[in-house]
Amino acid sequence: MQKVFGYPRSLTPKRTHYCPGCTHGIIHRLIAEAIDDLGIQEQTVGIAPVGCAVLAYEYFDVDFQEAAHGRAPAVATGIKRVHPEAIVFSYQGDGDLASIGTAEIIHAAARGENITVIFINNTVYGMTGGQMAPTTLPGQKTTTSPYGRDITKVGYPIRVCEMLATLDGPAYIERVSVHDPKHIIKAGRAIRKAFEMQIAGKGFSLVEVLSTCPTNWGLTPVKALERLKEEMIPYYPLGVFRSTEEVAKE
């Protein structure tokens, strides 16, 4: 019989610390599957962020560096320049990437740095207890926007993919979601594609994954998935925002 499903080799057997219903675990798995499929486990170096995924290095069976808050793209740059043959990816949340680390992500993208960024957007700071993130939706209640995000006072959410797609440096930018099996499969393909772009030396690739935070949203896991689908996707549309391959085809 052919084995069609198994535990990814690139994940350690360790149980994650993530909350019940959190989608980090799914996304970790998708990354590990891509690494397995592409046969790059022995040459991959990951960069863990500050945020809920700070312990990501416990779960991936690949070399890792822990970065300071927001600095992962700079750290990834340093690693990639020393080992151009390595496959380097950062795993960053929305506070990390789109707030404190905006300079790092924009300039890594602008340089066309040949790295892959997995960007988790769940519209809150998870680990610190559910504060407002740069991606928090208008009106959304968080611990630091207790009356709902008031766009007249704190401004608008940042759409990272759209913003980075204006640059000439990136090779591949896609936004995906993990709210149902169909979309999880699509997300897996996007992550794999991003790694393939790096392997081919095409340059900077980023996959934004719309994700849930049932704990800080105060929703059950199922309700959280519904919110993702009904409230987040309309604001953060899914799709490929930039692909140099398609540009070449046109």
């Binding site: 970065a67 700079a74 750290v75 740059t77 340093g78 690693i79 020393v82 080992h83 790092e104 924009i106």
Partner: peptide, 22 residues
């Protein structure tokens, strides 16, 4: 040689490169 976007990024590139053995 990389002219980084800030001193903050430059030192973190050093972190990545030094950690990678360079």
């Amino acid at each position: 040689f990389i002219q980084a976007e800030s001193e903050v990024s430059a030192i973190n590139m050093v972190y990545g490169a030094g950690g990678a053995g360079g």
